[in-house]
Design a protein around this nucleic acid. Sequence first.
DNA 1: CGCGTGTCAAGAGCACTGCTCACATTGCGG
DNA 2: CCGCAATGTGAGCAGTGCTCTTGACACGCG
Lengths: 264, 264
Amino acid sequence: MPDTDPNRPPDAVAPRTPRERARAEFTADLLAAARARVRDEGAAQLSLRAVARDLGVASSAVYRYVDSRDALLTLLIIEAYDAAGTACEEAAERGRRAGAAPAQTWLAVARAFRAWALADRHGFGLVYGTPVPGYLAPQDTVRPATRVWGALGGVVAAAMADGSLRPGGPDVAARDLVEPQVLEFAAGIGAGAAAPGGSDALESAAGGVVGSEVLFAALLGAVSMELYGHLHNVMTDTARVFDVAMATAAAGVGLHVSLDGPVP
Amino acid sequence: MPDTDPNRPPDAVAPRTPRERARAEFTADLLAAARARVRDEGAAQLSLRAVARDLGVASSAVYRYVDSRDALLTLLIIEAYDAAGTACEEAAERGRRAGAAPAQTWLAVARAFRAWALADRHGFGLVYGTPVPGYLAPQDTVRPATRVWGALGGVVAAAMADGSLRPGGPDVAARDLVEPQVLEFAAGIGAGAAAPGGSDALESAAGGVVGSEVLFAALLGAVSMELYGHLHNVMTDTARVFDVAMATAAAGVGLHVSLDGPVP
DNA sequence: CGCGTGTCAAGAGCACTGCTCACATTGCGG
DNA sequence: CCGCAATGTGAGCAGTGCTCTTGACACGCG
């Protein structure tokens, strides 16, 4: 078996030999071409042969660099996850630095997510839309997928920490709803925010996870509706409707957004 | 040009001639076969040749009954919209008949939608997932698509009528957010519920539309997340999480669900 | 009743897809 | 400098949507 593994992570610091250099370059070109095709044709229409034609090589040559069409899609999926993640993380970080209220930061994160989705609708579909039936997400995708979750959880945790969280929904025992390892992780993140009593730290962390799930669901649903035309001929100012929807849903969680206030 | 039009609406009351009868039967079989294939393979994998094989006919024969693969998909899309619509409408009607609080009816409608989506995940993807890139929804799909919206709007209108709506989110001028014809329609529906002042009847109707949009977004997002695996290894009891999410989001709109109370 | 008409199924064919494989070429490293 | 690994090529297989010609059948009118 050759030691060059298709789909190897792009961690190679510096390609030493010209061959490795060429390989890295071609892989980058390949990804760029695929990205372009997905951008304006969608993932379903992505054809390896077409990408090969774009690059001016035989279709079979592509298989030297990528295991299969699905593997190529996986790379693009990771890219999309990462793009969404950085967009949300940056917005959250901006809010944190500006000392904005968590509720306003939430709106900023939501807007960042929406902006990303609007700019790369097929990327959004790739990761949050209908999955390809036979396709099972490899393990490489779970960490990038976590990042948006993380940004949302951070906002909720901040609101819990500064006491601005005033939930309007039902109070439920959230502890048993969250998978143990996620709960442990969340409790670790929000450790400083937990009540020093310590007994209900886990419950508090679980509440944060459930809260971010509600936020994420509202976000995903609102963007899906807008992107997939379910708001067409119903709403006029979709950006404003989005803000209202995010503020309204967040109010249930306990984040009270001021739509006239500053958004970082 | 022959007067038999593929994709003609199934309005023909009774097939008179044996020919028409056979045609209707075959069309029904065709739809059933396609539905089955979509159900367990997904829309993307739907192959006209495959359903032709299932029916034991040549692939070309199918084109006598259906214009194209997309046209066949459109028929299935309408079916899916209708299935979701009836599920939600029935739940809403059940709640109304039982005299349940609008908030509880909302939960019932949401559960009905989720149950439909779980039972026919590919049907859900067909209508609420990533649209096929080249595909533009024909006009036939808009009326079925409206039905879920309608059920949600009815619940919100009922809550506005009986005064149980206590919004927790920001109060916004919703009137300019809604397309005029939708606004007119909504005002017509909730006419009895509007304040007799009449001046802000439109604003009230607009608020109802925006409210149902928020509910729909939360619903769509929650089901998407569950169905597409974004809750995998995060949440344990997805049904309960769904209830909590729906109750929480609805609280922002002003519907205060009791998760321990009766759900029609 | 017979025959034209039109509806129908079949099959070949085109252009495309993902993917594999034998072969030729190229260039790196021992 | 030579051998071998990495690379690119093109043919080929099995599948797809869709079109068009061909032949068979049944309906209904005269």
